[in-house]
Write a protein that binds this DNA or RNA. Structure first.
Lengths: 218, 218, 218, 218
DNA sequence: GATGAATGAGTGTTCATTCAT
DNA sequence: CATGAATGAACACTCATTCAT
């Protein structure tokens, strides 16, 4: 058994045991002892590789976020069509990747969200992740929509993606990926369709407060 | 200090202390001792009015849900316009009611969601609430849309509402209610607009699996 | 509902609820709340009729002992034969009376014994009761046996009665009263038989230490 | 202070502290905190070596029973005479061994008996122990008595031993071992004496129940 | 007489963390 | 590197008791 170079192996081992523990009993009941048992190591080792329990949790959250980003990045690299619509589809699909809609991931995300409200370090990670989705969407919408509308479309699509994910996670049933993607696509297309009606610079400016977003003719 | 008939008073007192505690330190660290201290009563009284901590948590969740339902119901009663659009607006506005977008309520909702993944009793409450929103929305959409489209619209709008709420809660900033309502209204109107393009019975039937919801011309 | 003269009724009611509680969960888990619930009264009433929990327990122990004594006394009154053997049989039968070999009584006795090792008030009751059995037996044996032998016979028969009772109680099965009585009768008769071999005053004196009680010829 | 291989040392240490605690305040008041203090260790260590308090109690009961069995076994090995009477004397003496008639042991036994009425795991231990005494006695009586009489003699002697022990324990005074042994010996000899009177098949037959299997020639 | 609201100390148990080996 | 022994504070919960009504 090698005594050197164990760090990355052990860290990954412990992160996966953490996901497993959260899946089984929830973050609140995922004790160091349980995680160590699931990983097949001793209790004390966790302090050795992570400063404390919070360090392990933050690392686990970082891992699950990197999985999400990799899911989007991999799809983007396989892309032949450079259109905004194609890029948006990639983002949508990546967010409903199998790595994100399974039991452990969904339970862990929910637990992280709840924890992030009270732990600054998790909150920072959370905001970065939230912003990345919005930013990616906005960037693509911006290619065909004026800034104000691109922002609103990005906010709406980001919310719709998260909302679909959330309701799917809370349902307790298997996640209906196809249905979620179909609803998100429709929203995307409805927003992209505005590029044909918003062709004058004046309308692209932010409307006054009375606007509720309907097309002017409605 | 009265010694009889304290039950409803104490229960409400303890539920509000629970909300306060969850707001301050999160559900995981909201100990019986803290809640009792915030309520200005002894530890033991909680067992007297709620069977145990879970009972208090479930009661708190029930309270927060009843606030949501009352918010919607009050707006509905004040309604003069019976159109589907007016009813949908009421539902949207009720979900972003001040009782739902303040710190304690948002933190409590997030904590409940995370807990509901591992506590059957909370999960049941959760599902009832989720279904109510979908059901209310679907009912209104159904008045002007064929069943299949009404369902999809309801699913989408429910997800959008929850997603807007979620991203607002996680942002850490004050909730931008106007923006959320504006985005939800737009989605509502885009869905309602379909009633003018889906005017033949054939199209009202459930389309084959290929459908992703784009306007026919796309 | 009369407000006066409730004392004996309530006391009996609470004692019987205590027996019931000890039968169900043991003395250690027989809380005031449980006893009060079984009796159909409020918690606070117990302090009113008994000083505290110890008072209720002592009263319950007194009650169960009085049942034992009544069982013996009733049989003695029905006696037509005044012989020592008849009286001894009455004592044996009384100790295996139905009031003493049912679940609640057996569990309560055992619990009392354990408690009496640490509670002086219960220990006093315990000693009185133990002595009464020995004393009653010795009194009868004395009518036909010299003092030394009467004492030893009484000690042995008292121990045998208690031991049969104890092993029956601990077995968990229904108490085999007939078998217990048969074994006790046999011991009684073996002891009474000594009156025919110990007919000289000298032998009635306490023998030296070597004696183990066998008949001289053994 | 060694940090590995502490398990047997700590377990024994804790068991002895438990006996001490039961002796001082009774099983009901022998809290984890008290036991840990008597053992000179921290509260938490008990969960580390025994699953919970019940585990510690069961281990303590097991220990005290093993002491009893060792007391009998040691005497049996020192035996030169293989007669039934010699073996029976060994069993009697072993049951009144110094390890069984001291304060802590007697109080612990009484507490275990009471607890065994409501704790299945203790009840099982209890029955095994009770049966062992009966079985050992019956086995020796059987060498000289027909089955029915051997069984009755064994039941009687087992009850007498337990009863002598019980009355001695409850008396509160120092245990009079000599007197107890003398009374038990006498019973043993009275039973063994039957071998000379039960030499015809007719008398050997079980009075009501009919014969239960003694050798035809006995 | 009787209730049940209220207390607060005490319970068994869990747990993250430390550290000698 | 890795173990697991050990700690002690914190936890939810129980309970006998008190007392205003």
């Amino acid at each position: 058994m090698p005594k050197v170079g164990m760090q990355p192996i052990r860290r990954q081992q412990l992160i996966e045991a953490t996901l497993q523990a959260v899946d089984q009993v929830g973050l609140g009941d995922a004790s160091i002892a349980l995680i160590a048992r699931l990983a097949g190591v001793s209790n004390g080792i966790i302090s050795h590789y992570f400063q404390d329990k919070n360090g392990l949790i933050a690392a686990t959250m970082g891992y699950i976020m990197s999985m999400l980003n990799e899911g989007v990045a991999a799809r983007r690299q396989a892309l032949t069509d450079d259109s905004p619509r194609a890029h948006l589809k990639v983002i949508i699909e990546g967010n409903f990747d199998a790595s994100q809609v399974n039991g452990p991931a969904m339970k862990t995300w929910l637990a992280f969200w709840a924890s992030s409200m009270h732990q600054p370090s998790l909150h920072r990670l959370q905001r970065i992740n939230d912003h990345r989705l919005y930013s990616n969407l906005c960037c693509q919408f911006r290619r065909v929509l004026p800034l104000y509308h691109a922002r609103k479309a990005a906010r709406g699509l980001a919310a719709l993606i998260d909302g679909l994910w959330l309701r799917g996670a809370l349902s307790g049933d298997a996640f209906d990926t196809d249905q979620a993607i179909r609803i998100a696509y429709e929203y995307m297309d409805l927003q992209l369709a505005k590029q044909h009606t918003l062709d004058t610079p004046d309308q692209a400016a932010e409307p006054p407060r009375t606007a509720t977003g309907q097309p002017a003719g409605a």
